[in-house]
Simulated scan of single mutants.
Amino acid sequence: MSTIVQGADYRALYFGERESKATGTLASSTVSLFTVSGGRVALTSIYGVVDTAVTVANTYKLQFNPTTGTTVDLVAERDIGTTDTAAGELLGFTGDAGGAVLSIGGAVETLRAPIVLAAGDIESVSTGTDGAITWVVTWVPLDDGASMAAA
């Protein structure tokens, strides 16, 4: 039996385009992960994969820094290092207003509804000094010419 529709095709139909970006070794800094340009996009999912264990105290969050407007937290700060976060763990959040808490584990929830983003950057904000995370996003353009790419 032949397969006409591939897995990547299903993902694109359900979630949109896919992009990923590694943070590199976490440091006490803010790092741009993804850049939205050319208009608005709908962020349909986002999750992180811990590449290197986080083993020291690290208050961590993701934020969106628009080209015009006010920077907003996508997920509230959480210490991901005092109780080690092992390599291979997943990071996720639902995007619920007021309840956006980073979850950690072998299975995590992702966005319950898309988040509309204007032009700007999704940023990783870390206070720790070890560990590394690869973030994966899916998105669809809401305006002609809008796109999202790894920063």
Rank of each mutant, 00 (worst) to 15 (best):
G98T: 11
G128F: 08
D96E: 15
E109I: 09
G145S: 10
M148H: 00
R112S: 15
V137T: 10
W135P: 00
A150W: 04
S147E: 12
L142K: 03
S103V: 12
I133E: 04
S103A: 14
L111F: 10
L91I: 09
F93R: 08
G92N: 11
G131P: 02
D143F: 02
L91R: 03
A107T: 13
F93H: 14
V136A: 04
A149W: 00
V125E: 10
G105K: 03
T129N: 13
V137C: 08
G92Y: 08
W135H: 00
D130P: 00
F93A: 11
T110M: 13
P114H: 11
S147F: 01
S147H: 01
T129I: 11
S147Q: 08
A119R: 01
G99H: 10
G105T: 06
G95M: 14
A119K: 02
A149G: 09
I115T: 15
L117C: 06
D144V: 13
L111T: 11
E123S: 05
T127L: 01
S147C: 00
D121T: 12
I122M: 03
A119N: 15
M148Y: 02
V136T: 12
L102Q: 05
S126F: 08
S103G: 09
A150K: 07
V116N: 12
G131T: 04
E123M: 08
V136L: 08
S126T: 14
F93P: 04
R112I: 14
E109G: 15
W135N: 00
L91S: 04
A132G: 09
E109W: 13
S124P: 02
M148T: 04
G120P: 05
T138I: 01
A118N: 14
A149K: 08
G128A: 10
S124A: 07
T129L: 06
V101F: 09
I115M: 13
S124T: 05
I115F: 08
V101N: 10
G95N: 12
V125M: 02
I133P: 04
G106N: 13
V108I: 15
L142G: 04
G98H: 05
T94M: 11
L142P: 03
L91H: 05
L111Y: 13
D144E: 14
T94Q: 14
S147N: 09
A149V: 11
L91D: 06
I122C: 02
S124G: 02
S126R: 10
T127G: 00
L111Q: 12
V137W: 04
V116M: 11
G105Q: 03
T138E: 09
V136Q: 05
W135F: 10
G95F: 13
G98P: 05
G98F: 06
R112N: 15
A132R: 07
D143Q: 09
D121G: 01
V137H: 00
A107M: 09
W139P: 01
D143K: 07
V140P: 05
T94K: 15
G106A: 14
P141C: 00
G99F: 12
V140K: 15
V125I: 13
T138A: 10
